[in-house]
């Protein structure tokens, strides 16, 4: 097994689910044993319930999809009482995911999540393209100062590992990564969906009810690889990479570009066994190429 250590956690393999594509795992447990995963990253929760956006919330895109779910969730308390207990019976690590409308909500939500024994880490989602703030209606993670503010505030609430999940749509990803690291983030989850939209010429309407949303799937992989590579070269923060990973080869490419772990997102909608098949494929590659551990491949891109 390709065991890894990241952010102080020991994972049995480098494969996690990407938040928002996996619920809390219950549906996928009908297709495979969740104990085969490195970690389950749950869907983002907020302090209070959110109804989400009006339909349509999803649409096809060339080699990918658009979504504007709008962080629909029943709130952090419902998650703790109803979703988390299910994951107890699986031998895997659990990362909860938190978002908020302001720093105070981030703090309160992370505090509640981190206090749960089932939660091994918290991913701080500062990059949902369907949740904007401030006068510019930007995403939290588009500004290094905001990243620093949120991450420093949640850092005070817990010693458990914190992943900072950030947006790809920034001028300088290394400034964002550095801000997260300086504020005490243990790892960087890179990338969230790329802000995007689609148009139906026949009806002259947007494809999404929310007009704009996020692009994911194979279409975004080259963008994600470049951002991971940029961060790997310049900032000493462990990287959890994602963006269009459909198979083990995709995951291995991210590891070559510097990722310690990967998350599988949109692929779960196409192949419900994607996470476990990718984990098996990574192991096979390591065996075939006589690689001992992740460091034998991580960042070893020949340039």
């Amino acid at each position: 097994m390709v065991k890894i250590k990241i952010a102080g956690l020991e994972l049995k393999n480098p494969v996690m689910s990407a938040s928002g594509t996996f619920g809390s795992g219950a549906e996928f447990a009908e297709f495979f044993d969740l104990s085969l995963m490195g970690a389950v990253v749950c869907k983002t929760v907020t302090l209070n319930e959110r109804a989400g956006n009006k339909p349509p919330r999803v649409a096809d895109a060339p080699a990918g999809m658009l979504n504007a779910i709008g962080l629909e969730n029943k709130g952090v308390e419902y998650f703790i009482n109803t979703s988390l207990p299910f994951l107890r019976k699986y031998d895997t690590k659990v990362a909860a995911s938190a978002a908020g409308n302001n720093v105070e909500e981030y703090v309160e939500t992370v505090k509640l999540l981190a206090a749960q024994p089932e939660v091994h880490a918290v991913e701080v989602n500062m990059s949902c393209p369907n949740v904007t703030h401030g006068v510019n209606r930007g995403l939290f993670s588009q500004n290094p100062d905001t990243v620093k503010e949120i991450m420093s505030a949640v850092r005070k609430e817990t010693k458990k590992p914190l992943f900072a999940k950030v947006s790809p749509q920034v001028a300088d990803i290394t400034a964002i990564a550095k801000a997260a690291l300086d504020a005490g983030a243990d790892a960087l989850s890179l990338i969230n969906t790329i802000p995007a939209m689609g148009v139906d010429l026949k009806t002259r309407r947007p494809l999404l009810g929310n007009v704009t949303g996020g692009l994911s799937g194979p279409a975004v992989k080259p963008v994600a690889l470049k951002l991971v590579w940029d961060v790997f070269k310049t900032v000493k923060i462990p990287i959890i990479a994602m963006g269009g990973i459909m198979n083990a080869a995709d995951a291995l490419e991210f590891i070559l570009c510097g990722a310690t772990a990967v998350q599988v997102g949109t692929a779960n909608f196409i192949n419900p066994r994607a996470c476990v098949e990718i984990a098996a494929g990574i192991e096979k590659y390591f065996e075939e190429n006589k690689l001992q551990n992740i460091e034998d491949l991580r960042g070893k891109l020949k340039v």
Binding site: R57, M65, I69, F269, P272
Partner: peptide
């Protein structure tokens, strides 16, 4: 319009 079909993605309200 639907993505996962499983209730996970919350895409078809």
């Amino acid at each position: 319009k639907m993505a996962c079909g499983l209730g996970v993605c919350r895409g078809c309200p």
